[in-house]
């Protein structure tokens, strides 16, 4: 009995006090403003204190000079290939071949994935992060010749993409005279192709990777492949000197 009476009593008591269970509020006015976070605003030094150790470590790492380039690595190009695209794809191909010598060609990024040019001269870690800020992985595919043709025709239809180990001509948005790893393409042969996980899952509408014979994550980030390549050039006393080489033409 008590368990029933008690809540009624409390309710009656609170009703007596407030007229209802709690005060109700009505919205009567709204004022809106936006602040631009510019140098006009002072800084909170406690925040800087928090991030300074992170910044110091990061800056030291990012400012490390890891190589040199004799040419501007630029994505700007009137051709279906670009110096930056060729550098990127060749770097990944070189690094991948060390792990998996059977690889026939690589398609490690789309043109849109080339995020920043690299100026002539010293290459710092930060340059590579700006070029490739994303955490994409490299994936190796065993593809049927017919799927390889889809990949190559996608590259042709989009007026060229960064590739290495692959050469062809674009004619009416289709690929012709396809050469893979130095040999003429054969639609009846299976090929080993490395792409980023982004491309492989259809990013930028790329096609051909949906039904592979097999696929395997290499365990190498795209960016790490680029960093390794630049460092190896330096270790060998060489500078990057990428050129346009007619790997993809349009006639």
């Amino acid at each position: 009995m008590i368990s029933i009476k008690k809540p009624i009593y409390i309710f009656a008591f609170s009703a007596l006090l407030f007229g209802s269970c709690r005060t109700k509020y009505a919205l009567t006015k709204s004022n809106r403003e936006e602040y631009k976070i510019s140098s006009d605003i002072a800084v909170d030094s406690n925040i800087i204190k928090t991030y300074l150790p992170y910044k110091a470590k990061l800056d030291a790492e990012m400012n490390e000079v890891i190589g040199n380039t004799d040419v501007v690595l630029s994505k700007a190009s009137t051709l279906p290939e670009s110096v930056l695209g060729n550098f990127f794809a060749d770097a990944v191909f070189n690094q991948v071949k060390k792990l998996l010598p059977q690889v026939d060609f690589v398609f490690p990024t789309t043109k849109g994935g080339l995020r920043n040019d690299i100026a002539k001269g010293e290459i710092k870690v930060s340059n590579i992060f700006e070029l490739m800020p994303f955490e994409n992985q490299l994936v190796m595919f065993n593809l049927k010749g017919s799927d390889v043709l889809k990949v190559v025709n996608y590259i042709a239809a989009s007026n060229g993409q960064p590739v290495s180990g692959l050469r062809f001509n674009i004619k009416d948005k289709h690929a012709e005279n396809i050469q893979i790893n130095g040999k003429a393409f054969d639609v009846n042969v299976n090929y080993w192709v490395v792409a980023s996980d982004y491309i492989a899952s259809g990013g930028d509408d790329a096609t051909g990777f949906a039904t592979p014979i097999s696929q395997k994550n290499i365990g190498l980030l795209v960016r790490d492949a680029l960093l390794k390549e630049v460092k190896e050039f330096k270790a060998a006393g060489k500078s990057i000197n990428t050129k346009l080489d007619g790997r993809i033409t349009k006639n």
Binding site: G19, K24, Y25, A26, L27, N31, R32, E34, K36, I37
Partner: peptide
Amino acid sequence: INLGRIDYYFEPYKAKKM
């Protein structure tokens, strides 16, 4: 780049009045 701000003003009322 920006911080947004919206101030809301409320006033109390008795049930059913508003």
